[in-house]
Amino acid sequence: MLIDDSRPIFVQIAERIENDIVDGALAEESQVPSTNEFAAFYRINPATAAKGVSRLVDEGLLYKKRGIGMFVAAGARAKLLERRREEFFRQYVQPLTREARKLGITSEQLTQMLGRSDSGTQLPEGSVAQ
């Protein structure tokens, strides 16, 4: 099963759609599967799927075309990337610099280290956060 037990399912559904927007699988202005399709695919309660989708509508990432369905809003990807970069900063960079300071690593040394690390693993922009 693709759903885990640690968090509410609607949160997981919302995150999945966000991920698809971020990595381009769902282009802006393209149609998102219906909540019933989500429900059937993940074998979850349709109301739960609807809750996940409507959360993204509330955040302005999706919008509803009457009688047709849900679509990815223009600018959704940029908005998500911005949010995830912010998260990345708080979740990884801040602890990193805090720890570096404790160990007496200067910011030049830190930049150098990051450069060295980056040549080993190449990560496409934006796909860092889970």
Binding site: T35, N36, A39, A40, R43, N45, P46
Partner: peptide, 13 residues
């Protein structure tokens, strides 16, 4: 059964 339940429930709440 579970699949039909979800599907039919979605179409006929």
């Amino acid at each position: 059964f579970y699949d039909r339940l979800v599907q039919d429930f979605a179409e006929h709440p």
